[in-house]
């Protein structure tokens, strides 16, 4: 057992005790911290220096020659946008960006000039009041020329077999035929996407009908369900509207509800009448309308008929053309129509 204790310290000494490295490391660390803090402060300072531009577009590359249009989720409106975009690009030399957006979101984007124009609006009184009347950031661009109408529809083959179904008073008679597992013994009325304006619950309640709304939740689901019923020739009742490209594929017959009178839908809880016919309208960002030059003028002039819109919509939905291709085809065949839209 080694018992002797060493008398001397044989440790090799490497370097000075407080090695230089320690000092430099400390200094380096301090420097690093200082840099980080300074950097953070600089960023803060920079960003605080200037207020951000509020109206800046959220899409890059926008120039004065760029027009941004919304693409709503339904095909009819896609047709508007596609044709307008095609003409803006090819006749007026603009660059067009399209942005897919929900309707209410589109209003907001319009107000902040993230988009320049909405070409088909089915009526958003709340937003219209807020942005057009109060904040004046959005202005009307006139009518699109297409008239929209919402209503209750049954398939033609069913209406042919039971002609009286087209009167709401007789709907209860057929409730059983419309019933599904979802509607729990009552007749089912198929509802669409939550986007859409609907007073159906109130109408059913106020007219005392033996119906129950079943919410498809999306237009795609509703269309799929309709097609499925049609394929099987089953009876069904659905909330539906025109213009709609599916109407060209599937014959639907509207059920007559108590006639619409001005103001009968003023209180949503007491509605007991049909939906009105709505002239669809265009809205432009206020600044764009003022400074948008030819593009703004063109979009204000843009107006066409339900049939014309449907023609393009069908190319997209039925023939599966891309919106651009459909627009190109329509533009080629309808020069007389669109010539009138171009600003002089």
């Amino acid at each position: 057992m080694p018992t002797g204790s060493p008398t001397g310290n044989t440790r090799p000494t490497h370097g000075p005790r407080p090695p230089r490295g320690a000092r430099t490391a400390r200094a380096r660390r301090a420097a690093r911290t200082a840099t980080a803090v300074a950097g953070a402060l600089a960023v803060l300072a920079l960003s605080a220096c200037g207020a951000a531009e509020t109206g800046r577009s959220q899409r890059a590359g926008d120039t004065e020659r760029t027009v941004t249009l919304t693409v709503p989720s339904w095909v009819g409106a896609q047709a508007n946008t596609a044709v307008a975009a095609y003409l803006l690009e090819n006749e007026l030399g603009y660059e067009v960006r399209t942005q897919q957006l929900g309707e209410v979101l589109a209003w907001d984007a319009l107000s902040r000039s993230d988009v320049d124009a909405v070409l088909e609006d089915w009526g958003h009184p709340k937003e219209e009041k807020r942005y057009v009347e109060e904040r004046k950031t959005v202005v009307s661009g006139g009518d699109l020329g297409v008239t929209g109408h919402i209503g209750w529809y049954v398939p033609k083959y069913f209406a042919d077999a039971h002609p009286d179904v087209t009167d709401w008073r007789n709907l209860d008679k057929y409730a059983e035929e419309f019933a599904t597992a979802e509607s729990g013994g009552k007749g089912q009325i198929l509802e669409g996407s939550p986007d859409y304006v609907t007073h159906d619950e109130a109408i059913i309640r106020n007219l005392g009908l033996d119906l129950k709304p079943v919410y498809a939740g999306s237009e795609a689901a509703q269309i799929t369900a309709i097609r499925k019923h049609v394929a099987q020739k089953k009876p069904f009742l659905t909330y539906w509207w025109t213009p709609q490209w599916l109407n060209a594929q599937v014959d639907l017959v509207e059920v007559k509800l108590p006639a619409y009178r001005e103001g009968c839908d003023a209180d949503p809880a007491k509605v007991a009448c049909a939906y009105p016919r709505t002239p669809l309208r265009k809205f432009l960002n206020a600044d764009f309308a003022k400074d948008g030059g030819k593009a703004a003028a063109f979009l204000k002039n843009f107006t066409w008929t339900t049939e014309q819109q449907n023609e393009v919509a069908l190319m997209i939905a039925d023939r599966k053309l891309s919106p651009e291709a459909a627009a190109e085809e329509w533009v080629k065949d309808n020069e007389a129509v669109w010539k009138t839209w171009l600003p002089k």
Binding site: G15, P19, G21, A22, R23, T24
Partner: peptide, 8 residues
């Protein structure tokens, strides 16, 4: 300890 890379 803070010794530089090469030295350590």
């Amino acid at each position: 300890q803070g010794v530089g890379r090469a030295e350590r």
